[in-house]
């Protein structure tokens, strides 16, 4: 069949690399073609028509022309620039993390409308979010894993198929699910999973984000959930997810600052609610400290 010379698609730019003096090579994520590599010409010059419409973390409607090697972006119209996300250090960093996972799991030339919607939803929820984004990321990860065939088994032991009770359970990244206490204690690579974490994971795995966000998660539980899922993802990819390090650095940085009293020192000129807002900009969990 003859291929169309020009086509239109929704797209989110995953990443850009410079090409020559004025051009960029884009990695796009699209609903029907999966990942697509394309050239955006002249975008590094100020005043380029494409400009902000080919930046990462932007949902656009693009027109592309089939090229010999790479397709060429001829037009790009922004559907949502996620401005709220981009103007907040923590949120934009969460956005980068989502992009990195999409880049790792999406496939070139293979349709994945569900994953496309899932990523857009994550960006939208991050824009609206008031609590810091941890639940958004975990919900995104769990559903992404299901879409690519790595849904973790959370109801039966992956070792002996026995049903899981309220005794001590383990999670095995290698086997992609829960281990009962006897299988788990024999498997040195698995880690204990608390009953609270198990219940939350089971609920999030089958619910939409608005439902998932109703679960109250304290700092310790949030950390356990983050660790168990990121160990699993690291095992699947056989490498680190690079943005994780940056997210952890931002969290640590915010905690150090509060400890040093940097923000308290300025409290005289600001109301407490301003202060809480300031901290929420940096990281989740801190707003709770100010309530205490």
């Amino acid at each position: 069949m003859r291929q169309l010379r020009v086509y239109q698609t929704q797209a989110v730019v995953i990443k850009q690399t410079g090409l020559g003096e004025a051009d960029k090579i884009l990695t796009l994520f699209t609903p029907d073609l999966g990942k697509v590599k394309a050239v955006a010409k002249g975008v590094r010059r100020p005043g380029s028509k494409l400009g902000g419409a080919v930046e990462p973390l932007t949902h656009s409607l693009m027109t592309l022309a089939k090229g010999r090697n790479l397709d060429i972006v001829t037009q790009s119209q922004i559907i949502d620039g996620f401005a709220t996300l981009k103007s907040d250090l923590w949120k934009v960093s969460c956005g980068f993390y989502v992009l990195e996972l999409v880049d790792a799991f999406a496939v070139e030339g293979s349709a994945n409308r569900d994953m496309f919607e899932l990523a857009l939803d994550a960006f939208r929820y991050l824009c609206q979010d008031e609590d810091g984004g941890d639940t958004i990321l975990r919900h995104f990860e769990l559903h992404l894993l299901s879409m690519v065939g790595y849904c973790p088994q959370l109801h039966r032991c992956v070792g002996c198929s026995s049903s899981i009770g309220s005794q001590r359970n383990f999670f095995s990244a290698e086997q992609g699910g829960l281990l009962c206490s006897c299988c788990g204690s024999r498997d040195g690579s698995s880690h204990i999973l608390s009953l609270r974490a198990l219940k939350v994971l089971r609920l999030w795995q089958k619910s939409s984000y608005p439902e998932a966000s109703r679960v109250k998660v304290d700092g310790k539980l949030a950390e356990e959930l983050q660790q168990v899922i990121s160990q699993y993802i690291r095992y699947i990819l056989q490498r680190e997810v690079k943005s994780t390090k940056w997210l952890q650095e931002l969290k640590k940085f915010a905690v150090d600052n509060t400890r040093r009293g940097v923000y308290n020192a300025r409290q005289s000129s600001k109301t407490v609610s301003d202060e809480r807002k300031l901290c929420r900009l940096i990281t989740p969990g801190l707003s709770k400290k100010f309530n205490a």
């Binding site: 005043g47 028509k49 902000g52 419409a53 930046e55 932007t58 620039g81 401005a83």
Partner: peptide
């Protein structure tokens, strides 16, 4: 940017 067209500017800009 100088010489830009408001109509074609994105929401972030």
């Amino acid at each position: 940017p100088f010489g830009a067209d408001l109509e074609y500017a994105d929401d972030v800009t």
